[in-house]
Simulated assay, not measured.
Amino acid sequence: MIEPLYSPDEKRYESMQYARSGRSGVLLSRISLGFWHNFGATVPLATARDIMRCAFDNGVVSMDLANNYGPPYGSAEETFGEIFRKDFRPYRDELFIATKAGYDMWPGPYGNWGSRKYLMASLDQSLRRMGLDYVDVFYSHRFDPDTPVEETLTALVDIVRQGKALYIALSKWPREAEEAAYRFLDNQGCHCLLYQDRLNIFDRSSEQSGRLKTASDAGVGYIAFSPLAQGLLTDRYLNGIPEGSRATQGRFLKAEQITQEIIERIKTLSQIAANRGQTLAQMATAWVLNRPGVTSAIVGCSSASQLRDTISSIDRLDFSEEELRLIDAAAGIDKV
């Protein structure tokens, strides 16, 4: 039996919202699809394919990958490449594809951190796995305190000049290094497109440290990951830790983090969301997108239906001052 060709929804751009990324010509979908979880070799290809199709059918054009997403390392890019080859090659120019390098990828001294050799070799591998000639944006995934910052940044600039990436970006750099990097890159005529960091109702360190404002002041877009706090900001943990949840796997969200106090906070936030006519996941995503300077939020999901639910958060991005105050109180955030 010949599988029918994928034909995306003709109305895919009618309901999605788009925002300009800093001082650039790039518009990103307010929701970006993250490949950190649920696209590795342990997930059926059909599931990953349904999620990607659902994303594109709903106007999500920003795809966020990294070299070591899996498991195992590289397998999320391989999954993307297989689905891209089957479904999305005719729509390459409608997609905005990101990948990164900076964390452990292969053994030895050249498979980690921020050297020129690692960044360039990693991107070449990523392009082969995804079946692409270039990515739209390539990130330094983390700051390397031991490699001269000029080496890391010059490698990023050269990657753009070689045509292997259209733009460059930074993720999880300290504020002082972030600020200096923007000046260096602008002097090289290669403006930084995006800064990526964790931001959610529970974790506001990116705001509190000034990293988000530093990006905004420099004309750099800001893209938030973990808007749902690894699933905490969903209804999944309202009654404890369900079997098979991310917390039972103990990789990034650990069971000991889900205390009775956290559960009570989640319950209060869920009620605030219900009063707004949203699920907790929808409200948590909307809260991130409502923050000044935020261009897009990266969402992960385990099914197309879960993704559709989160995408609908853009239908209600407004918050009253009272709602924001209640959210702060429920999250344990003290306002001066």
Rank of each mutant, 00 (worst) to 15 (best):
R20F: 14
R23M: 02
R23Y: 02
V26G: 07
W36K: 09
A46S: 14
R53A: 05
F56H: 04
F56Y: 04
N68M: 04
Y69K: 07
P72A: 11
E78R: 01
G81T: 14
F84D: 10
R89G: 07
E94C: 15
F96T: 01
G114L: 10
K117M: 07
D124G: 11
R129A: 09
M130K: 05
L132T: 14
P145F: 11
E151M: 14
G163A: 07
A169I: 02
L170Q: 09
S171Q: 11
P174G: 05
L185W: 03
C190G: 10
Y195M: 12
D197L: 02
I201K: 11
F202K: 13
R204D: 14
S206Q: 06
K213F: 12
T234H: 05
I241S: 15
P242K: 13
P242D: 00
E243R: 03
S245D: 01
R251D: 00
Q260I: 02
K267M: 14
T268M: 11
N275P: 02
N275W: 03
Q278D: 12
N290C: 11
P292K: 12
G300T: 02
G300H: 08
G300I: 09
D309L: 01
T310L: 10
I311Q: 06
S320H: 14
L326Q: 11
A330T: 07
